[in-house]
Design a protein around this nucleic acid. Structure first.
Lengths: 361, 361
DNA sequence: GTGAAAGCGCTAACAC
DNA sequence: GTGTTAGCGCTTTCAC
């Protein structure tokens, strides 16, 4: 709380302004001996003020330490010049560039960015989104955590522009920008198959997350298309918690018919898998969904199916601003391609498959 | 722009609300047949409304799709329940966790976070900060890009709570939370010296960045304290651009008296140095300032002087909220310790030093 | 319990 | 050129 009306030793105390309560246009007008509207004109750089008057107003502004209160301006104008971004975790290496890209687009349109992390909690997502609606942000970009976004219907009906990104909304028809999760995963798994693998494990994120489900579908499609069976122990969706991933990976690599390759469903799972494989007795092939920094410096360098998180964010934000500028056509669904990047780990030959004659170990 | 007054095919259109212009408390009051203040009481969960009245108000709220306009509330109450964070780059792996930590503290205090990236541009920093002041955020957390923050004096004098983090403000006395950059760098370089190195190169960030300067001082102090000379070609501050870092690293490793170890001034420099060293003929020791993901999986694993970016953010945000709650003592300077994490690269012996007899190559 | 009136600080509309 | 008035949608004050 600003220490209202109290005098303190430190700090510059602008002449005429009470400490903690800022001068208003009215104060500036009084000091400059002009009308309120004239101050407004000067502050907003509008035409029709004589140079001398303008000068006097500027002096008063400086003397009083005046700064326009945008809260009042916003209330009057009806637009906040800000957009909201709700995602899972601002600090996640996948979402951080997405967030930054949204910020850049917002900046190009003169808008500020308010963002919040849902921590993968649907209730927290809802609270955040509705708080942003109450603030009357001009638009919303949402990476959904929940699976039912009907709570947004009244908001959208009332004019709140909303674009979903990375994952589709639940039970709601709205704009969405996605990566081609199914196709990307299928390509990654097919790549392993092309290098001779028949026993491939899938470790993914929680099955209720749409992207995770799509990637699992891609894995299954690639296996099926190659005429390969998917054994029960080879599919392990679940949390990205390191202990869980480690346990599943270790289990798949053990026994008398271990997998010879792993396909991992996102960056966090991949990193844990790399750690497990680093301690493993013989080489196991690996392709991960999502690129990550230093993947090329590991040994072996990690092959990935790369998304472009910044492009996801940029595309979503640009779509949002197109809506704000009036584009009123039906909700759009944009899918961005993924890119397979072979670096070494995905090109390792199968080792230890009892059914295939390959490099001995 | 919400399509004001226009009717469209999609979307739920709440009864009685014009499309694009939302119902107000007045509308709700009219519909419920009560006074404005009663609606306000219900919306804010205040005492003194009979159950039947409350029921009627709730029905009207639902029917109209009413949501309180916080812009108006903010104007009236004088507090925005939001804080601003300005930093260099939201997507940087060092700043992303800092930002997330600030967000969590804000959330705990019921505040939203508005953040912006300055892109290391003082003018952009100033614009962002002043835009946040105009919005009357309750407080500011700033990772400064500029070196003169006197522009903030009137704002601080008028009651804007401000905490600087990671780097000190320029020409302004204000709260600041820093890492012990000097001590951390000195410890990192002393570690290399303790492992036999006498020819150690320093590649840092731009010299005008306070943290970069402090780390350089730490390097020089460690060298001096060990009675070692610092040859002209061994110190290379500059941009974190990969080409620049690569060129300087390559130069230091060439010639007839190359360095046997590198100390790198931040995470981005370290990563580029790792790439250069990976392609180098013989082992070169490396200690980097800042920890980074997967440092332990590289070969050799990278020894670092680690900061705790989340702790920096948390500490700064908590200090900010203490100020908002009224703490009015003199500006505080908090320094958080760094931690040396030996992983392998910093413990490699010197190779190729003509003055020292060590492992041949 | 409830509500009418004033006003937060600005901009829009319309005087002069 | 300049100033006056009426709101934006809420909360606050105070009367009923």
């Amino acid at each position: 709380m600003p220490d209202s009306g109290r005098t303190t030793a430190r700090g510059h105390r602008p002449d005429g302004a009470r400490y903690g309560s800022r001068p208003t246009m009215k104060d500036v007008a009084a000091r400059a001996g002009v009308g309120l509207k004239t101050v407004s004109r000067v502050v907003n750089g509008e035409q029709g003020v004589s140079p001398e008057t303008e000068q006097r107003v500027h002096e008063a502004i400086t003397a009083l330490g005046f700064r326009r209160n945008d809260s009042a301006r916003i209330l009057r104008k009806g637009r906040t010049a800000s957009i909201g971004l709700v995602l899972e975790d601002l600090a996640d290496p996948f979402y951080a560039p997405l967030s930054r890209a949204v910020e850049e687009v917002a900046r190009a349109h003169g808008a500020l960015l308010i963002n919040g992390s849902s921590a993968e909690d649907p209730e927290r997502e809802r609270e955040l989104v509705l708080a942003l609606c109450a603030r009357r942000v001009d638009g919303l970009v949402i990476v959904p955590a929940g699976h039912d976004h009907r709570y947004l219907e009244p908001e959208i009906a009332a004019g709140m522009a909303t674009v979903f990104v990375d994952r589709p909304p639940g039970r709601l028809d709205a704009d969405v920008v996605l990566s081609e999760n199914f196709a990307g995963a299928r390509e990654g798994v097919a790549h392993l198959i092309a290098h001779g693998h028949r026993r491939i494990g899938f470790i993914g994120d929680q099955a209720h997350i749409p992207t995770a489900a799509e990637r699992l579908r891609g894995y299954e499609a690639a296996m099926t298309e190659a005429g390969l069976p998917v054994l029960p122990g080879w599919v392990a969706p679940g949390s990205t918690d390191a202990a869980r991933v480690r346990a599943d990976a270790t289990r798949m690599l053990a026994g008398d018919a271990p997998v010879t390759a792993l396909f991992t469903g996102n960056n966090r799972v991949t990193v844990t898998a790399v750690r497990v494989l680093a301690g493993h007795a013989h080489p196991v092939a690996l392709v991960g969904f999502d690129d990550f920094e230093l993947a090329d410096l590991l040994s072996p360098p990690v092959s990935v199916v790369a998304q472009d998180p910044a492009q996801l964010g940029r595309t979503a934000a640009e779509l949002l601003f197109r809506r704000l500028e009036g584009a009123g056509d039906a909700p759009r669904r944009v899918a961005l391609p993924t890119r397979l990047i072979p670096r070494g780990s995905g090109e390792l030959p199968p080792v230890g498959d009892p059914d295939v004659r390959t490099a001995a170990w």
